[in-house]
């Protein structure tokens, strides 16, 4: 199970980022390298000044979904950012910002949370992806 898991994160809502963090941590626990590529609103959520904020939920969550997510959090579920941090401590997890999205959002590397390792283009992402799956969230 050494093939990398390659996650392209587009959405910046807390539920989708939580799902991505769970996949990241699970793969890291199995010893699989994980490459995370941050685009658009997911990249915005990794801004140092915004990462701890409420990023809302996908529209299909509705009020019931909001309550379910809040209840799990109140019961002690780690946030997606904490889960990503734990995954990086455990395994080989590389988080890269998409260079196009950096331009789109007028961001500099210093604007990003330290969870983000660097900035790359889509070509570098695909090269590093090797023969592993690419998952888009």
């Amino acid at each position: 199970m050494d093939e990398p898991l390659n996650l392209v994160l587009f959405s910046g809502t807390d539920d989708k980022l939580q799902a991505a963090a769970v996949l990241t941590a699970g793969a890291a626990a199995l010893g699989r390298p994980v490459h995370v590529f941050l685009q658009y609103w997911a990249l915005d959520a990794f801004r140092a000044d915004r990462i701890g904020r409420d990023h809302g939920l996908a529209p299909e969550a509705g009020p019931e979904g909001r309550k379910a997510v809040d209840d799990l959090r109140a019961a002690g579920q780690a946030s997606w950012a904490e889960t990503m941090r734990t995954a990086k401590e455990l395994g080989d997890v590389d988080i890269e910002a998409c260079s196009l999205s950096m331009d789109l959002l007028h961001l500099e590397p210093s604007d990003l949370d330290p969870l983000v390792d660097g900035v790359e283009g889509v070509t570098a992402f695909f090269l590093n992806a090797e023969k592993g799956q690419v998952v888009f969230i």
């Binding site: 941590a25 699970g26 890291a28 626990a29 799990l72 002690g76 995954a87 455990l90």
Partner: peptide, 16 residues
């Protein structure tokens, strides 16, 4: 009380 995937993640950390 820990949710997926934390039991496995913490196990992997402990085993190391």
């Amino acid at each position: 009380g820990l949710n997926c995937p934390m039991p496995i993640v913490k196990t992997a950390i402990a085993i190391k």
